[in-house]
């Protein structure tokens, strides 16, 4: 079973999640209650999956995600958030998180999400799909430079179906595709979203003159 790290500043939550994961056979190699702890302990224990709360003491969940992915790009980050801040969720996914779950999700949903993220499959709630779709539609309407990747019609269609609450299985049936193909499309949308982030960072660097030798 996968090696997991749990990051949450509320001890009751940290313990509950740790208990659930251990009970299901996951190896919880570390826990952390602040962003700083999370980064040092991640570097020391190299877990495969990080279950991460967004609202933690400095640096916040988004920065921790960025740091973890740059330290070890193969690591998987699952956001487990109580926060109503959609922009934070979107920012974390742009920074490289591949899954998002609200804290009110049941234990079974959490375990399933950790299993899927560990296997390399993105965990999309309809809410996250709506956010990602909105992000691409927003940039399509406002972008003038055209250096940000856009979604293919197929990817948009699949994302819409995810946002409308269909399971990957139902989507595969409706579009006459394999389950795997649907997953690949969803994964591609995440990859492109993360590229958005890189384009934005590059633009920022150029504007600030940071690209000069």
């Amino acid at each position: 079973m996968s090696r997991v790290m749990v990051v949450d500043d509320h001890p009751m939550w940290r313990d509950a999640v740790e208990r659930d994961l251990t009970g299901a056979g996951f190896e919880v190699v570390a826990t952390a209650s602040t962003g700083r702890e999370a980064i040092t302990r991640f570097a020391a224990t190299r877990p495969e999956v990080v279950v991460l709360d967004l609202q933690i003491p400095e640096p916040d969940g988004v920065q921790v995600t960025t740091e973890i992915i740059s330290l070890h790009p193969a690591a998987k980050v699952l956001i487990l958030s109580a926060s109503g801040e959609q922009n934070d969720v979107l920012a974390a996914v742009k920074a490289g998180a591949t899954g998002y779950l609200v804290k009110s999700a049941s234990r079974d949903e959490l375990l399933e999400a950790v299993r899927r993220v560990a296997a390399g499959d993105p965990v999309f709630t309809p809410g996250l799909a709506g956010l990602v779709l909105g992000e691409f539609q927003h940039s399509a309407a406002t972008e003038v430079r055209g250096d940000k990747p856009t979604l293919t019609d197929r990817e948009t269609e699949i994302l819409k179906l995810v946002a409308k609450g269909l399971s990957y299985r139902q989507i595969a049936d409706r579009l006459v595709l394999s389950h795997r193909t649907v997953q690949n499309h969803v994964q591609n949308t995440l990859r492109k979203l993360q590229m958005h982030n890189r384009v934005e960072l590059t633009r920022y660097a150029i504007e600030q003159g940071l690209d000069a030798d």
């Binding site: 926060s83 804290k103 009110s104």
Partner: peptide, 13 residues
């Protein structure tokens, strides 16, 4: 709000 949301979510779960 974050604190309240955390508790509500935990109670629910």
């Amino acid at each position: 709000h974050d604190g309240v949301l955390q508790v509500l979510a935990l109670v629910q779960r």
